[in-house]
């Protein structure tokens, strides 16, 4: 297979005052991947993105983006990259179409070149017919889609997305996911940060989980779950859950308590389910383990702010 490396990061460190925000990060992302960077708030995801785009200088480590050394030649690298920021920063004084015309110009495209691309971009964003709409006439989902196609205006090889679907309703979110899958099938490399586990599980071919400025796990979503976590989860709550657990604990491979709910991680679920049937006062939910379980196992259940 002829895959080339799009991004290589070695030993990346960044310190703000006394705090190591990044404490030795290594990454390697190949062309055509959809790579997810996961982590709780403050884990260092956004800082990693800013460093990779050359928007701040690392204290140590090297970055090579599309064969360009960053930050030295970040400008040349950014010429071939699209960025979807965490918060929309569209130009509120311009119409939908003007936003694309103005943004494309930053990449050195002529107004004619951009205008020729606009119908396809509008169709991709589901905004056909809205070219002359003012931004305050658009819904949150429409603005997000416009931000996405604005990042595609110069047909980049790599698209970076910082929490692409945060704050969107399910319909809007699914539409964005559909579009990202289409970009993936067109061969674009997608690199996204998220704390939406469902998003990462659906879209990402590979992901890295970050915490406290380090990458603590890396791999394909299903493989990571299989490697780190039991296959089945039974969530139990209700009166007497602790008493029941004292007797049943031996049947679970691992138990975590969050508030009043016991999360029982099991390889063979049958004995626990049997014991639960004899406890009608307990409410339980049996489901396969997912990325969120893995995430919580690796980063803990404490709040991060």
């Amino acid at each position: 297979m002829n895959t080339k490396t799009v991004l290589r990061v070695n030993g990346l460190r960044k310190r703000y005052g006394e705090r190591d925000v990044l404490d030795g990060v290594d990454l390697e992302i190949a062309q055509g991947e959809c790579f997810g960077l996961l982590g709780p708030n403050g884990a260092g995801k956004t800082t990693t993105l800013r460093l990779v785009l050359g928007q701040t200088a690392p204290d140590a480590g090297t970055i090579t983006l599309l064969e360009e050394p960053v930050p030295e030649r970040a400008r040349e690298a950014r010429q071939r990259i699209g960025v979807v920021p965490q918060f929309d920063n569209l130009d509120p004084d311009f119409t939908v179409e003007e936003n694309l015309l103005v943004y494309g110009r930053y990449f050195g495209l002529t107004q004619g070149e951009i205008a020729a691309r606009i119908p396809a971009l509008m169709a991709f964003a589901g905004l056909t017919g809205r070219e002359h709409a003012r931004l305050n006439e658009l819904s949150g989902g429409m603005k997000r889609r416009l931000t996405l196609v604005r990042a595609l205006v110069h047909d980049p090889e790599v698209v970076f997305m910082d929490e692409p679907t945060t704050g969107l309703d399910p319909q809007a979110r699914h539409l964005i996911w559909e579009r990202l899958k289409r970009l993936k099938s067109e061969g674009k490399t997608l690199i996204l940060t998220t704390h939406f586990m469902e998003e990462a599980e659906r879209l990402c071919t590979r992901l890295a989980i970050m915490d406290h400025g380090r990458i603590i796990a890396q791999g394909a979503p299903r493989e990571l779950i299989a490697e780190h976590i039991e296959a089945q989860v039974i969530e139990v709550h209700g009166p007497g859950v602790e008493a029941w657990l004292d007797a049943a604990k031996g049947m679970a491979a691992r138990v975590e308590f969050a508030g009043e709910t016991a999360f029982c991680y099991v390889i063979n679920e049958q004995p626990l389910l049997e014991s639960l049937r004899a406890q009608p006062q307990l409410v339980y939910l049996h489901r396969p383990a997912n990325l969120e379980d893995l995430f919580l196992k690796l980063t803990g259940r404490d709040l991060r702010d």
Partner: peptide, 14 residues
């Protein structure tokens, strides 16, 4: 407020 500079800095401008 509009984060216009931030958007521009994601393009090949410094």
């Amino acid at each position: 407020h509009q984060k216009t500079w931030e958007a521009i800095l994601n393009a090949p401008l410094t």
